[in-house]
Design a binder for these strands. Sequence first.
DNA 1: GCCGTTTTCGGCCCGACTGTTTTCAGTCG
Length: 576
Amino acid sequence: MKNRELADIFTEMASFESLEESENARFKTRAYQKVAGILDSLQEDIAEIYKKGGVKALMEIPGIGKAIAEKIEEYLTTGKIAKYEEYKAKYPIDFKELTKIEGIGTKTALSLYKELGIKNIADLKDAISRGEISKLPGFGEKSEELLDKGIKQLESSKGRLLLSEALPVAEFIVERLRKSGLAEKVEIAGSTRRMRDTIGDIDILAIGTSSSEIMDLFTGLEDVERTVVKGPSKTTVYLKIGTTCDLRVIEPGSFGAAMQYFTGSKDHNIQVRKVAINKGYKLNEYGLYDRAGNMVSGVGEQELYNKLGMDWIPPEMRENRGEIELAMKHKLPNLIQYSSLKGDFHTHTKDTDGSNTLEEMVEYARKYGLEYIATTNHTKSLKVARGMDEARFSEYFSKVDRLNEELGKDFHILKGAEVDILKDGSLDLDNKTLGDMECVVASVHSNFNMAKDEMTKRVTTALESGYVNILGHPTGRLINERPPFQIDLEKVAESAESNNVVLEINAFPTRLDLKDTDIMLTSKFRVNYAIDSDAHNISHYSVLKYGIGTARRGWLEPGRVVNTFHLDKALRMLKK
DNA sequence: GCCGTTTTCGGCCCGACTGTTTTCAGTCG
Ligand SMILES: Nc1nc2c(ncn2[C@H]2C[C@H](O)[C@@H](COP(=O)(O)OP(=O)(O)OP(=O)(O)O)O2)c(=O)[nH]1
Ligand SMILES: [Mg+2]
Ligand SMILES: [Mg+2]
Ligand SMILES: [Zn+2]
């Protein structure tokens, strides 16, 4: 897809533009940045949009106007953008690489290039080792040291953490700050509060009046590798685990405004602040102020949204994807709640690649508060997982029957499988075995590199078999390891609707598949969803919260999620 | 460069921290 390429080009254009002297350069920069972000998250292929509707269709995308639409056209038809080439010749600098270093922006990169011909990190390292930086005008000893540390930090950084990696760290730091008694309140903010699938850095808000003590405690935590910046209101540290953590300390009267600010997202904040402006207010992290400068709201986050004419928006929805308009119209969805799941349709045991027995999986499901699970082991083609054949399933299910009898009415195990969708779209078990099951999860585990239409055909063929209840991890992505395979999710959802197949929101933190935007894309169809743990051991039920967070980010109401219902109703919804 | 139930021109979110800047630009949240 050209989306990615064009996003990179416009990000570079933004860098170039930020160095221009013209009056409007700042705002052009932002326009380019905004378009890059839009192209990055655009679901449709930009080339397709252009092919169907030309420049006019491009301009219908908010953020894309005439000038940028024509640049996109130029790129799609000639493979080049003249303006870009012109800038690139003027600034032959790898901004993408250099600005990844904390503290280096485009202006710094430019003076490094002008003074020392530095174009990339390798050049910069050489200059530092020769001690050339500190002699430069506008730079000193500290700047050189900062750049050196910045490079080391970048090299040791893990990149974006999984939500499941970041959340416990955030909770631990919050606990430490709370226990100190120095703060009235300590809360998680940022992308972690929004339950994003990956976390760039951890953000924590403390409410209190003794900020310097709180900051000292924070920078002194044993998990801290070094302090990056430290002030009375904001401190940034680099943690030993290879990620950054920001702490803001704000006074009690501003709790709501500070939470609103620090939860983000940035785009959501900007949009909310525009609403404030239109109402004659000013909004910042300290409060909402009228023209005379009087505080209109500060303590309560809900009150803040209300004063702006909106309903309170759940953090998971704060991505500027239309939630602000809905909140104004009082039409926000009633999102699925945490701990509202009654069951789990996707679990493994040590009979294949799990590490616990079915008895243990049941025991812990009950401890977790569930009323039923489906036991869905892998099928024979998945040899690395010791997938089971028909005979083993038959034997296994007699054990399930015995266990169900012992359990009585308290808990129920559904007989199922996570059956491989083979290359041709057929299923990896015979129809008799599949027909006897109560919960067939069908998943792609092989041949990921098919063309988009072939993969779509493969999956829809499986859905049309009449045996599939749930489509497992529909895009196959493994976060930070493997991109999703090419598939037309709208066609899949359409097929799921007509064949009564439920789409999975696999809650396993490396998957979170479907992801938030895929849920929004597919929920236009009359399909239901299942939030499944994909548990491979007894502790994995705890990942269900990440699946619920993802469902909330996809704006799902509980009525669309099959396992929010008790067994009877859930089974009726799964029925073919 | 984009955009418009007050606008097709004149706005564009708002503030914290750092360094060598003698009064604030650059970078970041
Ligand atoms: N108003 C405003 N708020 C911002 C801006 N940049 C960041 N924020 C707020 C909203 C963000 O969610 C919050 C934390 O900033 P981060 O850079 O850590 O972003 P966030 O946590 O959303 O994503 P991340 O996973 O860390 O990349 O600070 C900005 O430019 N303007
Ligand atoms: Mg963050
Ligand atoms: Mg942050
Ligand atoms: Zn699987």
